[in-house]
Amino acid sequence: MSDKSNNNLYAIEARDVNLYYGDFRAVKEIGGLKIHQQKITAIIGPSGCGKSTMLRAFNRMNDFVSTFHLEGEIVFHDKNIYDQDVDPVQLRRYIGMVFQKPNPFPKSIYDNIAWGAKVNGFRGNMDDLVEETLVKAALWDEVKDELKKSALALSGGQQQRLCIARALAVRPEIILMDEPCSALDPIATLKIEDLMRELSENYTIIIVTHNMQQAARASDYTAFFTMDEDRAGLMVEFGETNQIFTNPKEKKTEDYISGRFG
């Protein structure tokens, strides 16, 4: 897992994937979904189209659902992450996640970052690491004088940036974001989007969002998912965000992005 792939174009790739909860096929026939390295890829689509299930498959977060299973491969560092010898805890160090609702630990701002790093065996200067990640998450200037303050005293937008800082503290390669702004006000949302742009210079980001305007604003690539007649989610179109939002190839995509869906 530690050997970084020589193929610099793609960070992670879903190949011939079907995702199931028990007998129910939640996502079907993802022939090839290649996530570009150090770019932002958005997964959009109506409720129930399987976009979050797809996202969670990228770091085996679905393992927590006992009925979940996957057919196909998700390839990271030239290896299928669902192979038996892959440790999902190790995997999630490389592929971090930020959730819909900011979920800082009920501890100080400092400890929120230090804790994950310590658990992952960080041996360097913790003060430096805390500062470095808070700077990267564009939060440092706002909290540098009150690092001992409880993280829960921060605003929602600040909490979410703290969660991003916490994800960065274990030095991941990919950050998965599941509706990271849905609990935030518009200005906090725009701050997160600007932050994503900055982070994408060093990290690969995959974001699931209900808000297709956000996908348009903040991503480089967009995958549009929808639900088929059998209620399984499927990918209708994948392409550069600029193309998807100005000249989509599929009529279903055009209908959805122009608000003529359903």
């Binding site: 305007q213 348009a216 604003r217 965000t241 600029n242 939002f245 100005t246």
Partner: peptide
């Protein structure tokens, strides 16, 4: 410009 209008609202 069209891309900017379409994507950046």
């Amino acid at each position: 410009i069209l891309i900017t209008i379409a994507t950046q609202q």
